[in-house]
Measured scan of single mutants.
Amino acid sequence: KVKIAGPGLGSGVRARVLQSFTVDSSKAGLAPLEVRVLGPRGLVEPVNVVDNGDGTHTVTYTPSQEGPYMVSVKYADEEIPRSPFKVKVL
């Protein structure tokens, strides 16, 4: 029921550039959304989540370095389908 889309989860994500993606939970009811961005060697990146007021949230983060990242998206305390997402930061 929760959908996710945006360039911040795709290929070609650049280090030190603001990345974003949208989480659409409009068909999933009200529940807490939790997003974690883990970088190389367990680095935890700050994440900004904005409630758009229409059942969607815009998530932004800036990867601080190149390497493999994991983006975990939980809704109602459960990983959404395909989460955690593997993101290769260049």
Rank of each mutant, 00 (worst) to 15 (best):
V89I: 05
V59S: 01
G39K: 02
T58R: 12
S20G: 05
A31D: 14
S25F: 08
P84K: 01
V59D: 02
G55A: 10
I80M: 04
L9H: 03
D24K: 03
M70E: 15
V73K: 00
V87E: 02
T56F: 10
V71M: 05
E34R: 12
R16N: 13
K74D: 01
G55K: 10
D24H: 04
V17C: 08
N48P: 02
G6S: 05
T60R: 10
S83V: 00
K88M: 14
L30E: 15
P81D: 09
N52Y: 06
K1R: 08
A28W: 00
V2A: 01
F85R: 06
L18G: 08
K1N: 06
T56S: 09
F21M: 04
T56K: 11
V13Q: 06
V71N: 00
P46Q: 10
V17P: 02
P32C: 09
V71D: 00
S72R: 11
A76T: 02
G39H: 02
D54I: 05
G55N: 09
T56I: 14
P81V: 04
K86L: 13
R16L: 11
D77A: 09
L33F: 06
K1S: 06
N48R: 12
P81R: 06
F21I: 05
V2Q: 00
G6P: 06
V35K: 02
S25I: 15
S83K: 01
V13T: 04
Y61M: 00
Y61N: 00
F85H: 06
S20V: 13
V2K: 02
E79G: 04
E34A: 14
L90A: 15
R14F: 12
V37Y: 02
V71C: 04
V89T: 06
V17G: 04
V13G: 03
V87L: 14
V44S: 14
A31G: 15
E78C: 10
V89R: 02
T56P: 01
T62D: 01
V49A: 08
G39I: 03
V71P: 00
D24P: 01
S26P: 04
S26Q: 08
V2Y: 03
A5L: 13
V37H: 00
I4W: 04
R36H: 13
L90H: 15
L9P: 03
P7Y: 07
V73T: 01
A28H: 03
R16T: 14
K86N: 15
T62K: 08
V35L: 04
S64L: 10
L18D: 08
S72Q: 08
K27L: 13
V13A: 07
D24I: 05
R14T: 14
R82S: 15
V17S: 09
P84Q: 03
T60G: 06
S64G: 09
S25P: 04
R41T: 14
A76I: 02
K74Y: 11
V13L: 06
A28M: 04
L90N: 14
Q65L: 11
P32I: 07
V17L: 08
F85M: 09
T58A: 12
E78Q: 12
V59Y: 07
P63E: 01
S20H: 13
G42S: 08
V2H: 04
G10N: 11
M70A: 12
G8Y: 01
T60V: 06
D77W: 06
E45V: 08
G42P: 02
P84Y: 01
D77R: 10
P7I: 07
V44E: 15
R16Y: 07
G29W: 05
V71I: 15
V47T: 08
P81H: 06
V73W: 01
L18M: 12
N48M: 13
R41Y: 12
S11K: 11
K86G: 10
S26K: 09
R16V: 03
V35S: 00
V37D: 00
Y61V: 01
G39V: 00
V17Y: 06
S25N: 05
L43K: 14
L43N: 13
V13F: 04
R41V: 08
V23L: 05
S83E: 03
V23H: 01
R82W: 10
R82G: 13
T62C: 07
Q65I: 13
P46T: 10
K3V: 12
D51P: 12
L43E: 14
I4R: 00
N48S: 13
T60P: 00
A76C: 07
H57P: 01
K88R: 15
G29N: 07
V47F: 06
K86V: 12
G12K: 10
T56H: 12
V73Q: 01
V23C: 05
G6T: 04
G53F: 13
L30A: 13
T60I: 06
P40A: 05
R82I: 06
Y75V: 11
P40K: 03
K74V: 05
V2R: 02
K1C: 05
E79H: 12
T22S: 07
S83Q: 02
R16E: 12
G53L: 13
Q65E: 13
D54T: 07
G67F: 00
P40Y: 01
Y69R: 01
P68K: 15
N48V: 10
P68R: 14
A15Y: 07
G39W: 01
V71L: 07
V44H: 15
V44L: 11
D77F: 08
V13D: 00
K74R: 11
P68Y: 15
D24C: 04
K1M: 15
G6R: 03
V89H: 04
M70D: 10
R16P: 03
K27I: 08
A76G: 13
V47L: 06
H57L: 05
S25W: 08
V73L: 04
Q19M: 00
G39E: 02
V59T: 03
G67W: 00
F85P: 01
G67M: 01
V35D: 01
R82E: 14
D77G: 14
S20C: 11
I80C: 13
S20A: 09
A28S: 09
E78I: 10
E45I: 08
E34N: 07
N48W: 06
R16K: 10
D51K: 14
G8D: 04
V13P: 03
G67S: 01
A15Q: 12
T58H: 13
R14E: 14
P32G: 09
G29I: 08
D24Y: 06
V49E: 04
E45K: 04
V59L: 02
V71Q: 00
Q19W: 02
E45P: 04
V44I: 13
G10F: 13
E79M: 08
G67E: 01
P32Y: 08
E45Y: 06
L90K: 13
E45G: 03
L43Y: 11
G53E: 12
E66H: 14
I4S: 05
V59A: 09
P46W: 07
V50P: 00
G42A: 10
S25G: 07
S26C: 06
H57V: 05
P32W: 05
V37G: 00
R36I: 11
V49G: 02
F85C: 06
V37C: 14
E79P: 09
L90P: 12
G29Y: 08
E45S: 06
K86S: 15
T22P: 00
S72A: 05
V73A: 03
S11D: 14
L90T: 10
F21E: 00
Q65N: 10
G53S: 12
S11V: 11
G10E: 13
G42V: 02
R14G: 05
I80S: 03
V17E: 13
V17H: 07
V17F: 07
V49D: 05
K88H: 15
V50I: 13
G29D: 09
G55D: 07
V23F: 02
V35N: 01
P46K: 11
G55I: 03
G39Y: 01
V2M: 02
V13E: 03
N52M: 11
K86W: 09
L9V: 07
T22N: 07
K1P: 04
